[in-house]
């Protein structure tokens, strides 16, 4: 009987590993190995014709910390994340609550909001280029009706980052709304009715019942928005190329520039490692701390 149980256990183990292996192979080849290789690269100097590659420890990191552009880019990215995440989530939630209500042409409203999401980021950027172009752009055209002077939204350091932020919010809000809408549909209608009978106002119902029940979704969206605030840079290539004078440069764009414009792979690797560490810490907080405090259905 024990041999039978052993055989059964071994069979289960093999079965488990077989199921796991495709993901394991893919993740190893395309995530774990590159991450470790990046960490490795970041510890070596950049090879030139005169000086060969050598181990430098954390020198690449300290060089970066001494680089004012790096700090400007970090500041830009914090600002970018700090604005796009809460604003796009807030708009998404408001739109979802509205589109989930008893409004007419509900299907149309949902589709309209979702449209920016299905556009590729490059196409969206081109669309916004058409809004922002000084003189010809829609914004300037509208401005000129009211006698406002022409503004080069993308061309001046004070407005460039904000112009980028607005495009991102426009792109993301509709996407997040879909998640909120899906979550709202799972809240039974009777909860609203029970709250109605108890005399709860629409606001009380939203605050005490709906928002807590949306918490898992909010958390999920927040993590996604955070990741997007690091990885979504397509529109920079079209709109500003990080300029003027690095005013709209974001981390990933800077990494790309380091690696493929300045051919400084070790610095790019060092920056990548830092981004990965920060994101990993945030993910750990999400999964360990916040998940415990959230009610999952």
């Amino acid at each position: 009987m024990s041999t039978h149980a052993n055989l059964e256990r071994r069979r289960q183990a093999i079965y488990g590993w077989l199921l796991l292996s495709p993901a394991l192979v893919l993740l190893s080849a395309f995530a774990f190995y590159p991450s470790i290789a990046t960490l490795w690269t970041s510890l070596f100097s950049r090879g030139t014709r005169r000086r060969p590659v050598e181990y430098v420890g954390f020198e690449n990191y300290s060089d970066l910390f001494a680089d004012p552009t790096f700090w400007l880019v970090v500041k830009n990215n914090l600002m970018y994340a700090g604005v796009t995440i809460p604003v796009s989530m807030g708009i998404a939630l408001a739109m979802a609550l509205w589109a989930n209500g008893k409004i007419r042409a509900r299907g149309f409203v949902r589709t309209a909001y979702f449209t920016p999401t299905v556009l590729p980021m490059i196409a969206a950027a081109n669309l916004w280029l058409f809004f922002y172009t000084p003189g010809l752009g829609v914004l300037d055209q509208i401005g000129s009706v009211f006698g406002l002077p022409s503004v080069n939204w993308l061309g001046q350091p004070e407005t460039a980052l904000w112009a980028i932020i607005i495009v991102t919010i426009w792109k993301e809000a509709g996407f997040f709304m879909i998640f909120y809408l899906a979550a709202l549909q799972t809240i039974p209608e009777e909860l609203k009715e029970a709250a109605d009978i108890e005399g709860a106002s629409r606001w009380t119902y939203t605050r005490r019942i709906v928002l807590p029940l949306l918490m898992p979704t909010t958390l999920f969206i927040a993590v996604n928005a955070l990741i997007n605030s690091v990885k979504l840079i397509d529109h920079l290539f079209i709109l500003t190329k990080g300029g003027p004078s690095d005013a709209s440069k974001l981390l990933l764009y800077y990494i790309w520039e380091m690696a493929f414009a300045f051919f400084d792979a070790p610095s790019a690797a060092a920056m990548t490692v830092m981004v990965i560490v920060v994101l990993a810490i945030i993910a750990a907080i999400k999964f360990s701390y916040l998940d415990k405090r959230t009610h999952y259905q």
Binding site: P188, E190, L191, E193, A194, I197, R208, Q297
Partner: peptide
Amino acid sequence: NLSMVFQSYALFPH
């Protein structure tokens, strides 16, 4: 001024 018991109970799960 009335109360109601729903078939699904409609308790607030959180």
